[in-house]
């Protein structure tokens, strides 16, 4: 039994001269839930495609379940479940047939496909839509169907590329709940996201990627501890005044970050910072104290926000 199911070392993908993934290294342990967090264009999908054995690396080493995906593409893919960033469900087939036909692509028997399809429709809460056309499903349902489809071959690793992007909050919560169950059952999850709340909910451990490189690695809590303070005070003075006020705030808290629309003050005691701000006679239009999140970690590491 290998200690890790995925091992990437100095993994690189170049498109012409441009390095979309630029020498990243990471390992994923069996049963672990591993995340890649990063902004648009960070190279998350490109990494996922290499791990999914549908894209060949330019250089570096990659081992999936002990196999090199460049040489054993079909065999690696037969043990993975893939949820691509954009749904590619079969629009010409009905919901249940989508699952059955997908199972057949893996060489599974018709009987087994039927059994699994029914169980997975149940899991995805789509049993009553079994005969619907795919087009008639909502965005969240399509996503759930894609996840159900990815589980047809009992994958040892599930790859999820931005599983909840574009869904409304309720649909996201249903999906998180389903993914959480898989995690509890011991499925190895690898997911990308640019939502820090998603990463915090689902990932045991994650890497923060930007411009094809890894900026930091750790559990969400450890990353926050290491790169941010316990609390953050957000104050707004209106977009034209923020910059002017910034230097008057200087020196309060551990660190001050000035964004176009607000000022962030990092501290372990938010209330004390708020008190100090009003003692200096500054009157913010709005103010709030919140716990640090991965968003703050990202800001600290790159000087930019996660979602532009």
């Amino acid at each position: 039994m290998p200690s890790s199911v995925i091992t990437a070392s100095r993994l690189t993908k170049k498109y012409k001269e441009f390095a979309a993934v630029d020498g990243i290294s990471f390992e994923v342990a069996p049963g672990e839930s591993f995340g890649l967090l990063g902004p648009n264009g960070a190279g998350k999908s490109t990494t996922m495609r290499m791990v999914g054995a549908v894209s060949t690396r330019t250089s570096g080493e990659l081992s999936i379940l002990g196999l090199d995906p460049n040489e054993h593409g079909p065999e690696v893919r037969s043990q993975l479940g893939v949820v691509p960033q954009q749904d590619n469900l079969d629009m010409e087939l009905r919901v249940r047939d989508n699952l059955i036909v997908y199972g057949r692509y893996f060489g599974m028997s018709r009987a087994l496909c039927g059994e699994k399809a029914d169980a997975l429709l149940e899991f995805a809460q789509l049993s009553d839509r079994a005969k619907s056309k795919v087009d008639d499903l909502s965005g969240g349902m399509k996503r759930r169907l894609t996840i159900a489809r990815s589980l047809m071959n009992d994958p040892r690793i599930l790859l999820l590329d931005e599983p909840t992007t574009g869904l409304d909050p309720q649909a996201r919560h249903i999906l998180w709940d389903r993914l959480f169950r898989l995690k509890e059952q011991g499925t190895t999850l690898v997911l990308t996201t640019h939502y820090m709340d998603e990463a915090e909910q689902l990932c045991d451990r994650l890497v923060v990627v930007d411009k094809g490189a890894i900026m930091a690695e750790g559990s969400p809590a450890a990353l926050i501890r290491q790169y941010s303070t316990r609390e953050v005070v957000e104050v707004r003075f209106g977009s034209d005044r923020n910059a002017d006020v910034a230097h008057e705030i200087d020196g309060i808290g551990d660190r001050v970050e000035v964004l176009p629309d607000r000022i962030l003050v990092y501290t372990d005691d938010g209330d004390a910072v708020l008190a100090e701000i009003s003692r200096r006679g500054l009157e913010p239009i709005t103010s709030l104290v919140r716990r640090s999140s991965l968003e703050d970690v990202f800001l600290r590491l790159t000087g930019r926000s996660l979602i532009e």
Binding site: V5, G31, S78, G103, A119, L151, D154, L182, T187
Partner: peptide
């Protein structure tokens, strides 16, 4: 040993070509 997700741990026939 990785627990199979949710259902009976039936492995599909794998072609080792």
């Amino acid at each position: 040993m990785t627990a199979a997700p949710m259902l009976a741990p039936v492995r599909p026939a794998q072609s080792r070509r």
